[in-house]
Design a protein around this nucleic acid. Structure first.
Lengths: 202, 202, 202, 202
DNA sequence: GATGAATGAGCCTTCATTCAT
DNA sequence: GATGAATGAAGGCTCATTCAT
């Protein structure tokens, strides 16, 4: 049998591996969201993923690494989603509005990922992740904001302040546990952006 | 022996009680901040507090109730701090700026409490707390914002949006893990408030 | 109730503790002898001792410390037994014969302790025990041998050689797994000592 | 393809087999010596040997059989080494001195094998090995000792006693963990033999 | 009120072994 | 023959909680 003849088998095998890894990722997010880090044990996560506890250790060094890699995967995933439709050839307000809408879309579409990331980022696990590396994923957006400051379109204040008004209000609004009344319709998302823009624009 | 005769003893006992309860509170905050909910065990918390594990159960029904009551204590504590200097007899911008500065003062002075509250609020434990009850602590501030909307000083958008721009940017800026570059000087705090005001003002 | 009146209760409590510690000691010896270090798990040892696995950790830091302390206890116990009847006011041959008989008595009476000690001493665990400290238990016997050398009653060879002929043949003979044919009658023990004496005497 | 045509291949394969088997043997000895039976897992042994855990099961039925066969291999190896230079055409004392020196040479040259064998022989694994079979390897030496008894050159005591004075002192002296001070120079080895001979000679 | 001792249940991880390739 | 992936079972240890004192 030539390599070609059995390629479908190889595919099957490779697919299965990726499936297990993906199942562990999803199970980690789901379990941690449902019961928090305090109760999300390896046995519960692997049961949710449909694999043996021992199998986890083929894909991850230990539980900590599983949690960290789950977080990093989400951060990568989200930055990719934001940058996919990113287009810098527009007025700054429009660029940022598009980013704002893309963020909101992501937060809604991937609610569980977002909740996990929030829980992780507000726990001591966060110290295990290199902050610069994560920020690097969002470089184009950061660049465009810096240009806005240089061109005197955006207020010339500490950069963290700009970020704080661009990211966190929307994060809060997308969190049903915090803002249960806010309905994330396209209209509401846009009217929320108006506030963000007013905040940062010069 | 009458109640009077031993009142000084009761006082002594009562004092001791409060001391132990306070020690448990502080130990809970410290331990959870240092190692997260996943590792903050009863034995570690009580060791940090300098009491026996059994003693915890005199003051709290169980571990969950300890965590919840710790969170509620912090919320009460913070709302009291905010409202202490609250004065509604001023222009709305000044009122809110004072609240903003008071919040910042609290976040800085009680960093550990704030970190604990954030960690708690972003975990499933949060569902154990009645949200309305907590919001009620901040009623005067909410009232003043609602009046601002009614008087067309503040944008007439979903109330959650207003909150999102008043609370979360400052919370993010006060989190050294998120905004390590931001220095919370009086000046920086005030320039950050300028953005918040621009965001919500009509 | 005065302290005197309830002393029996305190005794009861203290006794119980010692009982648990003793039960763990015996269970460790028995379990390791029956199935070796490879299979003597904490759960099997504690089941044999009639206590919860968690209870072990009240009395010992961890499994390793349990094994080491069990070995040291045996070594202390044996040296005490040897020195109990030790009497240096006799001709050297008689002194050593008495020690030889006492050793043999101990090996037979406390077969399980001896087997455990042998298994331990021939494993890497042995490196965790301070050799000098253990040798110190047997100081009087060592002294008498050294005097024998000085007085030219015993051959003037490397001290380890003397020890090797005084201890290890008897240890081997007392090991049913090695010398199943040897019957440890008083007569056989004495005739074995004749060889040891001929070996070391000048 | 006939057997002849591919014999060179078979040779290659056979060589490879023997290499893997030998690697497993060495890895077993090394790993058990370093961490004892309690920690010497299949995965650690096979990692040390540079093969997959699954490969172990091609050469051995299971872990127990690996350990037993490792022990038997060592016994065979040692008896072969002792008998290689064995020559019965000499006075008994010289015969035994040669055996003594050969034993010592082996213990030193193959320290790790000796340590493994000691650890094994002092563990319950020993019961899995037929003692007579092992003793049979050393038959010529045993015969010569028996003749010594019959010819009234050696003391007429229980045979186990003779063995105990011929084997165990030297085993102890060759164990650095027991006799760290003893230096196994040719001279020291010979002076130790003098004691053994004095012990058994009539 | 306060505690050290005690525990069954569960923790994270590794075990010895098998199987598809 | 050789292997990496997979696993149920078990490893050592800590958990949250109770109880006798």
């Amino acid at each position: 049998m030539t390599k070609n003849e059995c390629s479908f088998i190889l595919d099957a095998v490779r697919t299965k591996d990726e499936e297990k890894k993906a199942a562990l990722f999803e199970a980690t997010v789901k379990t941690v969201n449902e019961m928090g880090f305090a109760s999300a044990s390896v046995s519960k996560i692997t049961k949710e993923a449909g694999v043996s506890p021992a199998t986890l250790y083929i894909y991850h060094k230990n539980k900590e690494e599983l949690l960290v890699s789950t977080y990093i995967t989400i951060e990568k995933n989200m930055s990719r989603a934001l940058l996919e439709k990113f287009n810098a050839d527009m007025p700054l307000r429009d660029i940022l509005e598009n980013v704002w809408v893309a963020m909101s879309d992501y937060f809604i579409k991937y609610q569980p990922y977002t909740r996990f990331a929030e829980q992780f980022a507000n726990s001591p696990y966060k110290t295990l992740v290199n902050k610069e590396m994560v920020m690097h994923y969002y470089a184009p957006i950061i660049d465009v904001l810096q240009q806005g400051i240089d061109q005197k379109i955006i207020k010339n204040v500490d950069f963290d302040i700009i970020i704080a008004f661009i990211c966190y209000p929307l994060l809060a609004l997308s969190n049903p546990g915090l803002c249960s009344d806010f309905e994330p319709t396209a209209e509401n998302i846009k009217s929320a952006f108006a506030l963000a823009w007013d905040a940062i624009k010069l």
